[in-house]
Design a protein around this nucleic acid. Structure first.
Lengths: 232, 232
DNA sequence: TACTGTGAAGCCTTTCACAGCC
DNA sequence: GGCTGTGAAAGGCTTCACAGTA
């Protein structure tokens, strides 16, 4: 297994977790890791970790494991996180402000270069060092700064309109935090960051059903819920 | 198919999407919906929607569909979102503030009754009508307000400590937004709201691989990313 | 005809088992 | 011995096909 077509989506979702674990291990000064180290930390099957890593093209050394630095770089490269994608954020509400304040997107290959809204109360403001423009300025600014990704943090009611604005401005990929499906052309890449999916899984477990599982519950990644390291 | 054991996790993750669609349809004044209506909106297979809905115990009418109001209630009840769970939030950073400002958790069965942090700059403050207490006050307040759920929004480095504080305070379920796996007893329910999982899927698609898929890409719910409707 | 409901088939992901290597 | 790498088996979710119903 190596490079091309069709990486399982579950694998893609786990790769960021591996990066997080690996960076933690790196800070401990270690030079290499084994899949058992990773799987222990994340409560996954070691074989699965090996299969996942194999997609990135890295090869490990029997008896030793994987060279830590190379492994991190391999995953980051595989995800394209070693290159910088210019992004804009549309919808400067509570969540939008939170994402604008998050100063680590660089590690994930993303740089927010502009923010947009329609509310005069926030247009023109400077939030965590980002200037908020009126949405009407999107086409011009998107082109000027070569913006490829749109981060959509409007309320659901404004999401479709805002996403159309993004597409008209030439944006090809949308990270959608609004709780609605978008209706866009097939050439636009959309990924829904659905917060409530995880909450549904949690709520259901709390309501008594799905008690004691057969195996020690593996790292739960309810698709749609993602992690973010905010500062306290 | 009806009530008990082992609801597929993908089903659980889709249920919130159905609720969102249904509430939208409800605002249009309609009385009933069919699974084809829902599947069209979310780009899913109608059969899958029917299977998912059957877990909630609702039954539809051939030729008509499902009674809209009953269907919404059935899903909400199934998820326990028709009852109120008291939650606390630990980690009042950017994301924590965003969640505190989100005033619709009631629709999802959650009520944040207190917030905690260790940073003196924020302890004692009032954020979106929530008082921020020092983490040391957690045990007492958790007991006083009967807090069952913890929302963890600290940086990764503080997550394990904070989660232990929660457990010591008697909290049984944790909605974890920090990018780390927690190490807790098997009786604690943890759900990781991993933001980066969705970003990984998006990034990978942008990097050229995984082009034109065979079928019109279905609603993408990269496990771990969730949606939230902030206000602009 | 236009839906629901469901058993069976198909596909994808995970887990198992074991060969290879140092 | 301890770890990687991988083919094969198992399991779970999705899709198909069709019976049932008003």
């Amino acid at each position: 297994m190596a490079d091309h077509r069709s990486v399982p989506e579950p694998t893609l979702r786990r790769l960021p977790c591996y990066i997080h674990v690996l960076k933690k291990v790196e800070q401990l000064g270690r030079q290499s890791v084994s899949t058992s180290d990773i799987s222990r930390e994340l409560k996954l099957d070691p074989t699965q970790v090996r299969k996942d890593l194999s997609y990135t093209g890295i090869v490990g050394k029997p008896r030793v494991g994987y060279p830590l630095k190379d492994l991190i770089e391999a995953i980051e490269h595989f995800l394209g996180w070693d290159e910088c994608t210019h992004a804009c954020l549309v919808g400067v509400g509570h969540l939008g402000k939170a994402l604008l304040g998050y100063n680590r997107f660089g590690e994930y290959g993303v740089r927010i270069v502009a923010a947009f809204d329609v509310d005069e109360a926030v247009v023109g403001a400077r939030i965590s060092d980002h200037i908020v423009y009126h949405i009407d300025a999107l086409p011009e600014i998107a082109q000027r700064f070569n913006i490829e990704m749109g981060i959509l943090t409007t309320p659901a009611s404004a999401a479709r309109g805002a996403s159309q604005n993004m597409v008209e401005a030439g944006i090809k990929a949308i990270w959608n935090f609004a709780p609605t499906a978008l209706e866009l052309g097939a050439d636009i890449i959309v990924e829904n960051a659905q917060l409530y999916a995880t909450l549904a899984v949690l709520s259901r477990q709390m309501r008594g059903r799905v008690q004691a599982q057969p195996k020690p519950s593996p790292l739960r990644i309810t698709p749609g819920a993602e992690q973010m390291g905010p500062e306290p």
